[in-house]
Amino acid sequence: MYRVEKAERIADRIFEFWINAPHVARNAHAGQFVVLRIDEKGERIPLTISAAEGDLVRVVFMTIGKTTTQLSSLKAGDGIRDVAGPLGHPSEVKYWGRCIVIGGGAGIACLPILARELKEAGNEVLSIIGARNADLLLLEDELREASDELVICTDDGSKGYHGFPADILKEQVAEGNVDAVWIIGPAIMMKITSGVTREAGIKTFVSLNPIMVDGTGMCGSCRVTVGGETKFACVDGPEFDAHLVDWDEMMQRQRTYTDQEHESLDKYHDHVCRLEAKLNE
């Protein structure tokens, strides 16, 4: 059992968990992930490591399916059956010069650790974060502290720049002072945003999140086509050169279990409803 030390809702449907997992926390780097299984009947899901301090590892997730919804119901003091990691290659942290790190949705939570490591390697770091509206933004202060500069974007203009991170990136690319870019967020956002740096040939990393089972290269569930070759996101990635990724195929494979995911979530909601009804009797 791995104890949840802190569980907090930090934005609409987005949760921040600190989990006691020394074997992960002590060896974690930006770009890596954990695979966790809540209980005996649970599935194994990958979550990117958002921070590590002492024996604690932080993950930030949005409730989407059954597992993330169930996870969000855990409180400090509860246990998670299994936490394996850190998995995958760390981000390619070295001296690049001027780096831009971009986050969307829950992916924003992956930026502070990356920005800090890039800064420690001597880089100048501009962070750009985007969300549909101000309520969906997260970890702003922490990220501001970790970067040289922070730009906030909202689709509806409720905070910061009214528009997408891709717009800001476009301006930066036009100014010609960008050496490396990281984009972490929903697949469609990574696909579109990385298009901005393609022509200029700026090295752009994305963190892919295909469906995984073991996370150790054993099953091939997470295979993606990168530069015409089959790669396993769990052991060859999860970060890849954005301009080489076959995005359409990856997004198609992400939808493999859509029907079952709905079925599982509906069943869970039913179960919770019945439980609550019983408690209220």
Binding site: E43, M218, S264
Partner: peptide, 18 residues
């Protein structure tokens, strides 16, 4: 095999793995 033998996907949705 992993989905069925280790994760019991044959018993979905009792078990979460599809």
């Amino acid at each position: 095999l992993t989905r069925v033998n280790l994760m019991h996907a044959d018993r979905f949705p009792e078990y979460d793995t599809p």
